[in-house]
Computed example of a mutant assay.
Amino acid sequence: MSGIGRAIAKKLVECGAETYALSRTQADLDTLKKEVPSMHVIQIDLQEWDKTRETIAKIGPVDLLVNNAGVSKLAKFTEMKKEDLDFVMDVNFNAVFNVSQVVAKAMVERGEGGSVINISSSASQDALMDHAAYCPSKAAVDMLTKCMALELGPHKIRVNSVNPTVTWTDMAKMHWSDPAKSEPMLAKIPLGKFIGVEDVVNSVIFLLSDKSAMTTGECVRIDGGLGVH
């Protein structure tokens, strides 16, 4: 677990929540556990549908869920390989659907409500070159967010997504460090910079909390004004 997910998990512990962090990378979990000894860490590959369901079902009760796992494979639309498309959709959309289904069903059965946050992207609404797999995967997350909010609202379960533009994580640095690529994007952002991890974390914590008790089904852009165009 790294980047946004790691920062969210640490903030949740800081806020007093009993927190479970899931990742397919054991090394990331080991360092997270070392930094935050009270953190519960679980190694799981979210592409494994049935194993993921079994693992999630053993955690509980879950009142707050953050679906953060995300990957990207960049290629021209005409050159995108099926295995890369499947990989992106499996992690970015199918895993969100799978984990949320297990958690939400348990929330409904308990009858105490809850809050779910899906980490989406401004790329769900803004087409990007070479992102013909990534952008649609996040658009699917946005619509899933709305469908979940509609069905789960009567059970006092709120569902929202957070949609940041480029957030300065290791993955972003890999794709956006070249000024030839980053400068045209930055020129479109009125606030003139990419998003910090803390900007995403703060929005997630707000939407998880009772401070946003009447907010559900929303896709909240964190983009420095990029979306005004």
Rank of each mutant, 00 (worst) to 15 (best):
E109A: 15
V96S: 00
D126P: 03
S115K: 06
P154Q: 02
E109W: 02
S122I: 14
D126N: 14
D86L: 12
A139G: 15
A95E: 06
L150K: 15
V166M: 08
D86I: 09
H131F: 15
E112M: 12
A139D: 03
S122C: 13
A172S: 15
H131P: 01
T167L: 08
E109Q: 13
A149Y: 02
N92P: 00
V91F: 05
L144I: 13
D126T: 12
M129H: 13
V166P: 04
G153P: 06
I117W: 05
E112N: 15
V116C: 05
A123M: 09
S121F: 01
E109R: 11
M89G: 06
D84T: 07
V103F: 08
M171V: 14
N160H: 07
Q125S: 13
L144C: 04
H131C: 08
D126Y: 11
L144S: 05
V141S: 12
T167H: 11
V166T: 13
H131V: 03
A133P: 00
M148H: 10
S120R: 00
S161V: 09
A104Y: 06
L85N: 11
D170R: 14
S121A: 11
F93S: 09
G113N: 08
E109P: 12
A172C: 04
V88C: 09
A172R: 05
G111L: 05
S121Q: 11
T167Y: 10
V108W: 01
L128D: 12
D170I: 13
V141H: 12
V88S: 04
R110T: 05
T169W: 07
M107L: 07
W168P: 10
D126E: 15
L150Y: 14
P136V: 01
M148D: 03
A127C: 06
I117T: 00
G153M: 08
G153N: 15
E83P: 03
D142I: 01
K146L: 13
I117G: 03
F97N: 05
I157V: 14
V116P: 00
A139V: 00
M143A: 04
P164A: 10
M143G: 11
P164W: 08
S121D: 01
P154Y: 10
A104N: 05
N94E: 05
N160K: 10
V141T: 02
V88Q: 05
C135F: 04
M171Y: 09
A149R: 00
T145Y: 06
D90M: 12
V166Q: 06
S161H: 04
G113E: 10
N92K: 08
K156D: 14
N98G: 11
M143D: 11
D90K: 12
K105H: 12
M143K: 13
Y134C: 03
Y134P: 03
P136W: 07
K105R: 15
F97I: 08
A149L: 04
G153C: 14
T167I: 11
Q101F: 02
A132N: 12
V102F: 09
F87H: 14
S161I: 08
E109I: 00
M143S: 14
S100K: 03
N98W: 00
A139H: 00
D130C: 13
V116W: 02
M148C: 07
L144Y: 10
H155I: 03
F87K: 14
V99N: 07
V159H: 05
V96R: 02
A172L: 03
M107T: 06
G113K: 02
F87G: 06
L152G: 08
T167Q: 04
